[in-house]
Design a binder for these strands. Sequence first.
DNA 1: AAAATTAACGGGAACGTTTTCGATAGCGTT
DNA 2: AACGCTATCGAAAACGTTCCCGTTAATTTT
Lengths: 338, 338
Amino acid sequence: MSNNITIKDIAKALGISTSTVSRALSDAWDVKRETRDRVLAMAKQLNYHPNLNAKNLQNKRTGTIGIIIPEFFSSFFPNVIMGIQEVLYEADFHIFITQSNESRSQELENLNLLRAHMVEGIIISTTNEGGNEDAYRQLMADGMPLVFFNRCPTTLNAPKVMIDDCRMAEKAVEHLIETGRRNIIHLLGPVNLEVSAMRARGFANALSRNGLDPAGRSLPAGIFIKDGQEAVEKLLAEGGPLPDAIFCFNDPVAIGAMKALKNAGFKVPDDIAIVGFSEGTMATVVEPQLTTVLQPTKEMGREAARLLLDQLSNPRHHTPQTVCLDARLNIRGSSARG
Amino acid sequence: MSNNITIKDIAKALGISTSTVSRALSDAWDVKRETRDRVLAMAKQLNYHPNLNAKNLQNKRTGTIGIIIPEFFSSFFPNVIMGIQEVLYEADFHIFITQSNESRSQELENLNLLRAHMVEGIIISTTNEGGNEDAYRQLMADGMPLVFFNRCPTTLNAPKVMIDDCRMAEKAVEHLIETGRRNIIHLLGPVNLEVSAMRARGFANALSRNGLDPAGRSLPAGIFIKDGQEAVEKLLAEGGPLPDAIFCFNDPVAIGAMKALKNAGFKVPDDIAIVGFSEGTMATVVEPQLTTVLQPTKEMGREAARLLLDQLSNPRHHTPQTVCLDARLNIRGSSARG
DNA sequence: AAAATTAACGGGAACGTTTTCGATAGCGTT
DNA sequence: AACGCTATCGAAAACGTTCCCGTTAATTTT
């Protein structure tokens, strides 16, 4: 931008002082109506734009908050961001989105980037690698407000917003049991994600509560379509007795599992029922449509933003609270049967 | 952040001047090795972080470039952003992502926001509302480097990176013709998008080149699943003769169309073939898998970033070029037949 | 009529950097 | 002994704002 006109230029053009120009632009009380109008007119005429660096250098703020998400590809995070934007824009904040690409080091870089850009707070969903807890701690110790959502470090006493993954997993698995399935397995998420553990626990709870033994019924998978596909292919290749239902860590894994089953000639849900988690666009596109847990993504974003604003307006000894949102099990074709 | 230590603090702690500290931190030649090490050590000890506002105020730059995309939901734009990041991070720039939500006014707000944040350039894909051409023009006149991708304003002489939508549409439709379809219709995209017109033109070209009359064979649809679904439902309700193939503006529309056909008891591709455009995650998830045009999204982002860097390093009279990337028609089940 | 208040503005320091221009000291040259 | 180098550092201006103090003139109060 070659556009270098400053308040000095306006002042000079009008034969007044920069102080007055500054006051006029910020609508101060001690400036005559007429001069204010002249300043505004001249500003428009000269196509003036305030220099945010100078302004922020002065008032020691940036009006920006940072976001770190692990990926862009599922519709989950974009939706959360929409919610964040909604309440943050309302509160006159801008957001600075970065993505860690599920990489620990990239996340660390982003943290430093955001700190260097002097964001006034950070909303973050961790990578599935984990391991940056010290950095979070350091940041919080330095007074940077942090809010976690969805993927939250267990060991950290910070504001978090999540859904009750354990209970929803229970519900999902109980639904499978109610529809007559007894031989249910679970495709696990990434090991160092708390949500993985939570959903696995919900799975186990549901089984034992119904007199089924959860031991040895969880298989490693992951997070992507291919993870689910490979896990099921491996299962089929082993030639052991097959389950009659699979509870998957998330939708992509569920879809991958469905693919593998179809390719091997099995019918979903008749031979094997499938349920996913964290409903995205694909759930109603795949055939049969996927039974899965719909998370209140937008509301999750709103809530995270609210927690951050709370901290901001209440800097001292803010006891970090964890808000837990309701989710809904959407029952569809992939688990149908009476 | 209550962390207010500056180079002054370092200077005071070491009994040297701020100039030296500054030089030491920026690795200048005229500072003794030993003092530089002491400065660095003290900086680490005090947990110093440079104030970007002050720094940027000085050197009149921000190292940030802005991105405006219309939405987050398809995987298209996130993929492009990955490409942009790749080359921009390499060149030591940060990116500032905003989304217009397909809204003209929101896009305008974003433009102003980015300008206020003094980004050094903007990469943008316009909304389907359009109408901000004057703002683009003004920005460019003020010396702000702009690069458009995918959705580019026709009337503007600016760097653009796109694929040859017309030719790819032709290819897609010719594929339908080669597989024996004669009665082909097109579901249109948003009216004020150049890509809509381009794909429609390609559709028409392919028809007339094969002795088929394109007149009256284009139906308004849109951009979302429901647009395609509703368009086909309307078509079916009208009770006229049905086509044997539908070329859709994009994948969601194609998927919507498939849904409507299936619901009405038609078989894809036997009764009616479907082809989409701009392949996303859903293309291989839907059943039958979707024949569609795969765009080089990541490369598109890389190229856009490169064009921006070109402009940045070559500020004056930079003749804006349009780079046209190759795309690929991925033939799948939805258009199968010999 | 003197004093006090108010309305409107200007001067200048400050925010945390970078950078230009010296300054100083040591040391070899002549 | 006077000179010029080189190496290393400090003083101070500048970047574009904001804001605390004045200051002046007009207006009101006593």
